[in-house]
Design a protein around this nucleic acid. Structure first.
Length: 500
DNA sequence: AAAAAAG
């Protein structure tokens, strides 16, 4: 990463007349998310003269907002540490309010009334002007888990499509069915008053599937789905890309990784390029390792880029612990006696496991002890997967066992405990931890700056070694719980995490 | 020695 790349905003280019350009200010101050409202720095950052002319109440460049505005959401919001904006020759204004973005009345209504949003988060205020301002440059955006990336690309898609044109104009590609469903739900809620319609292109159980040749072409403006199904719809010409204006990759590092969906993603990108000269490409993720960062920077050459340093990516508000477990039995008992008994009344928990089989085994073991929980992985019937997720999101279940199916993107604000029953490892080198997946798993807790705790259950020498590498990688100290049977240790852990 | 998607 070019560390000096954050100062390239000196050239002003022609902007639409009603826009008042101000400098993109890469946040350089390190701070914990939850400190945001108490942080005196917030109010003392220099104000740019252009924004002062525009509205004396509005202090663009800092995060101060009109005091008449409801700042409730503001209090909850995570603060982005160290974003670097490489803006090339285009100057963008950061948005302090959603009104600053020239969003339509209909979209604003969806944001305020249905989403109950009051003000853009940091990533939103920086990236949305880049997305919505001509010449609609491509964008690679990295921001913390739970900081509101989905809103960025959903608003981008909603704003850029023409509701009068009954043809697909925006496409969002996700790594799992669950994420596609979640994104389309956000989209539909935010776009409720726009008249824009959407289509979810994901695999369904065969019993419910309508043969594709019997289906009519998609006329919805926005399509959200998984790579295989999108490719299938495109190949039979039921998904036209002729009018495509904006292409989004959610969890983009995984979508463009060698061992992820690279081939599918590039195929789709090229097919769109062939039939539409100017389709804006947006890549969003909380993680971009060096390899994939280099690759995506080549794929999306002339776009805007914002990255976060890896040491600042680990969420401070989500406290991480390592639990010494002498054997597998101890791991199960930690979950049974500590996570269930202490954690249950605190909210919801997700337990991550390495394989489908261990998900089944753990689920059965806990059920045999009489504990209610559910489990999800890719070998489960799709209708049932949807049901498990819905029950969990509706708060009907408290503990969900999952493979890495839900490691990325899954957004359930009530989750404040994550358990790594085993640590994620790289496929090629199983002695190397998968740092990105680790971070994504942790990110299931502490959504939008909320408190959370992660318990890593360690048994073998290898697991301790993996843990050490993770601590070293993110340069953070993970507190040890030495006695897995000690209630006091768990209680003080939960207390330190702010959960009790 | 994997997960997911999809075939």
């Amino acid at each position: 990463m070019a560390d000096d790349a954050n100062s390239s905003t000196d050239t002003i280019i022609e902007k639409p007349s009603e826009e008042k350009p101000t400098e993109v200010k890469p946040a350089e101050v390190k701070r914990a998310w939850a400190d945001e409202v108490d942080d005196p720095d917030e109010e003392e950052q220099p104000t740019s003269s252009t924004s002062a002319e525009k509205d004396p109440e509005l202090n663009i460049g800092s995060l101060k907002i009109d005091e008449n505005k409801n700042t409730e959401k503001f209090l909850d919001e995570p603060e982005e540490g160290n974003i670097k904006a490489v803006t090339g020759d285009t100057l963008y204004s950061t948005a302090v309010t959603f009104e600053d973005l020239n969003l339509s009345e209909e979209i604003l209504k969806g944001l305020y009334v249905d989403m109950k949003f009051t003000r853009p988060s940091k990533i939103q205020s920086v990236s949305l002007p880049m997305i919505l301002t001509p010449p609609y440059k491509d964008l690679i955006a990295q921001a913390h888990n739970g900081s509101g990336k989905t809103t960025c690309f959903v608003l981008g898609m909603l704003s850029r499509v023409d509701v009068k044109l009954r043809a697909p104009q925006a496409l969002c590609i996700c790594p799992t069915r669950e994420l596609a469903i979640q994104n389309i739900e956000v989209l539909n809620k935010m776009g409720k008053y726009t008249g824009i319609t959407s289509f979810c292109a994901i695999p369904v159980d065969r019993a419910r599937d309508i043969p594709i040749n019997k289906r009519s072409p998609i006329t919805d403006q926005i399509v959200v789905g998984t790579p295989g199904t999108i490719k299938k719809w495109m190949s039979v010409k039921k998904l036209s890309v002729d009018d495509m204006k904006i292409l989004v990759f959610d969890e983009a590092d995984h979508m463009l990784a060698e061992d992820g969906f690279k081939d599918d993603s590039l195929r789709i990108m090229k097919d769109i390029e062939k039939s539409t000269p100017h389709c804006q490409v947006l890549l969003f993720s909380a993680t971009f390792n060096e390899t994939v960062k280099n690759f995506v920077s080549r794929v999306v050459k002339d776009g805007n880029q914002m990255f976060v340093r890896k040491e600042e990516l680990s969420l401070d508000v989500v406290k991480q612990y390592k639990v010494n477990c002498p054997d597998e039995y101890a791991k199960i008992h930690v979950i049974k006696d500590k996570i269930f008994e202490l954690g249950e009344k605190l909210g919801q928990s997700i337990i991550f496991v390495h394989t489908r089989r261990s998900a089944d085994v753990l689920h059965k073991a806990l059920s045999d002890y009489g504990w209610q929980c559910t489990s999800i992985h890719g070998a489960i019937e799709k209708d049932h997967r949807d049901k498990i997720v819905k029950e969990f999101k509706d708060g009907l279940t408290q503990v969900l066992i999952s493979t890495d199916l839900l490691a990325r993107g899954f957004d359930q604000s009530q989750v404040n405990v994550v358990v790594n029953y085993d640590l994620p490892v790289k496929y090629e080198y199983q002695s190397e931890p998968d740092y990105e997946v680790y971070l994504h798993r942790c990110g299931r807790a502490g959504r939008f700056g909320r408190k959370g705790a992660v318990f890593n259950l360690l048994c073998t020498q290898k697991e301790h070694m993996l843990m050490g590498k993770i601590e070293n990688h993110f340069q953070n100290n993970i507190v040890e719980i030495s006695d897995w049977q000690n209630n006091n240790e768990f209680e003080s852990a939960l207390k330190a995490a702010g959960l009790i």
